[in-house]
Computed example of a mutant assay.
Amino acid sequence: MISGCILCEDLNAELTEEHIFPLNAGGGLHARILCKDCNSILGSYVDGPYLRQKHIELARMTYKIKGRARAIPQPLSGVHEVQGNRGPMRIRLNAAGKAIVVGSAPSLRPVEDGLELTVHIDATERENLPVIIRSTLERHFRSQEGLAKGWTLEQKENAIRNAIAGAEATPTETDHTPFNVRGTWSLCLKAVFTEHVKVLYEVACLEFGKAFFHSEEGKKLRTFLREQCRPDADFDLESVALELRVVPILSDEIVALLDHLTDSSRYATHLVIAVRGGLVCSMFGSGAILSLDSFALDDDDSKVYFNKVNGRCRVMPFPELIHEANSRTRECLSSELSASSQEISRR
Rank of each mutant, 00 (worst) to 15 (best):
I160Y: 01
R161C: 01
R161S: 08
A163Q: 04
I164T: 01
A165N: 14
A167H: 04
A167W: 01
A169S: 14
A169D: 05
T170S: 10
P171D: 02
P171T: 03
T172N: 02
E173C: 12
E173P: 09
T174F: 01
D175Q: 08
D175A: 09
P178T: 12
P178S: 13
P178C: 10
F179A: 11
V181M: 08
V181N: 02
R182V: 07
R182A: 13
W185Q: 09
S186K: 09
C188W: 00
L189F: 11
L189P: 00
L189M: 03
A191V: 14
A191M: 02
V192M: 04
V192L: 12
F193G: 03
T194D: 08
T194W: 09
T194Q: 03
E195M: 12
E195Q: 07
E195T: 15
V197M: 00
K198R: 12
Y201M: 05
Y201H: 06
Y201C: 04
E207G: 05
E207M: 09
F208H: 11
G209H: 03
G209F: 05
G209Q: 00
A211R: 03
F213Y: 13
H214N: 09
H214Q: 06
S215P: 13
K220M: 06
K220E: 10
L221E: 06
L221R: 05
L221D: 09
L225R: 09
R226D: 03
R226P: 05
R226K: 11
Q228P: 14
Q228V: 14
C229F: 03
C229H: 10
C229W: 00
D232H: 05
F235Y: 12
V240T: 04
V240C: 01
E243W: 01
R245M: 02
V247F: 06
I249L: 07
I249Y: 01
I249F: 06
L250E: 03
L250P: 11
S251K: 07
D252K: 13
D252G: 12
E253K: 09
I254G: 06
I254L: 05
V255C: 05
A256M: 02
A256E: 12
L257R: 11
L261S: 08
T262I: 10
S264V: 11
S265R: 12
S265F: 06
R266W: 05
R266P: 14
R266A: 07
R266E: 00
Y267I: 14
Y267R: 15
H270E: 02
V272I: 15
I273T: 13
A274Y: 09
V275T: 06
R276S: 11
R276F: 08
R276V: 13
G278P: 14
L279F: 07
L279M: 13
V280P: 07
C281S: 15
F284L: 14
S286N: 15
G287I: 10
A288S: 13
A288P: 08
I289D: 00
L290N: 05
L290E: 06
S291W: 00
L292N: 04
L292T: 15
S294E: 14
S294A: 13
A296C: 13
L297T: 12
D301M: 09
D301C: 15
D301L: 12
K303H: 10
Y305G: 04
F306R: 04
N307T: 08
K308C: 15
K308W: 04
